[in-house]
């Protein structure tokens, strides 16, 4: 059983690579080196700040875009092109297909993020000539970004299991934006009364909470990240992704492949 998931995942990864997804790294490298050179002309103190802020923000946004645009096609494209017929007529369970696809996409993003991380550290070295202890915090920020990707991958896959790619993209992107303001949303819900409060709170807790994952600006200011937050975010990302995946499995398990 686990072997089939691995095969599906590695085929998904191969598809992403052959579809030239990793070319985004070139754009990323250009952006970052441009910024590193430009910022070198400005003041000393702000260099590090700009490189970290810009670098990590770009890692996050590039990854989100990739996650959404690959994720939304993972299931629907296979149904549309009927490539799924020859997969599901083998001893492959439908849930294995979903889980394999998820790991394939997540793996693609991890590899992509790994290369981008090298880029960020290289740019940092270029502007400040040496690494300092607080730079290790960047790793925490990168870890949070990857956790965020897991959630987005699972959500894109969920939408992909019942909706068209375009609609899925709209849904997934909206949730990303809403999720980035999830804490405001919960605060907002807390200010309401009665039924509205109840409904708003339910919605606010159901959308993914991305604000706790964004530590870029605090890390740029060398603020430490609480160990508790690392633990909570890890658990949250795992459970939320599991929830979205279970939803995708439930839908896909009952879907007729017309």
């Amino acid at each position: 059983m686990s072997a089939r998931i691995v095969h599906i995942a590695s085929n998904t990864f191969r598809e992403a690579v052959r579809d030239r997804v990793l070319y985004n790294l070139i754009a990323f490298a250009l952006l970052l080196s441009g910024a590193a050179i430009l910022v070198g002309q400005i003041s000393i103190d702000i260099k590090r700040l700009v490189v970290i802020n810009l670098g990590l923000t770009a890692v996050s946004l590039f990854g989100v875009v990739i996650a959404i645009f690959i994720g939304i096609g993972l299931v629907s494209k296979e149904i549309e092109r009927r490539t799924l017929y020859t997969v599901l007529s083998r001893p492959v369970r439908r849930w294995e297909f979903i889980v394999g696809k998820f790991f394939g996409l997540a793996g693609t993003l991890v590899v992509n993020t790994f290369f981008m991380a090298i880029g960020v550290f290289a740019a940092l070295l270029f502007v400040s000539h040496k690494f300092a202890r607080p730079d290790a915090l960047i790793l925490v920020a990168l870890y949070f970004i990857i956790l965020q990707f897991l959630i987005i991958c699972a959500l894109a896959l969920l939408f992909s299991s019942f909706s068209s790619p375009l609609l899925s993209a709209v849904f997934a992107f909206s949730l990303f934006v809403i999720g980035s303001f999830a804490e405001d949303l919960r605060g907002f819900a807390g200010m309401a009364h009665g039924l509205t409060r109840w409904l708003a709170s339910a919605a606010a807790y159901l959308v993914p909470n991305f604000s706790a994952f964004n530590v870029i600006s605090s890390i740029a200011h060398e603020q430490p990240v609480a160990g508790q937050l690392v633990l909570h975010n890890t658990l949250y990302a795992l459970f939320y992704a599991a929830m979205a995946l279970s939803g995708a499995v439930l839908i896909f398990e009952h879907r007729d492949l017309k």
Binding site: R14, D19, T86
Partner: peptide, 13 residues
């Protein structure tokens, strides 16, 4: 074994 009608496969393989 199953051959679907007008089969289409992963074209990157």
């Amino acid at each position: 074994g199953f051959l679907p009608e007008q089969p289409y496969f992963y074209d990157y393989l």
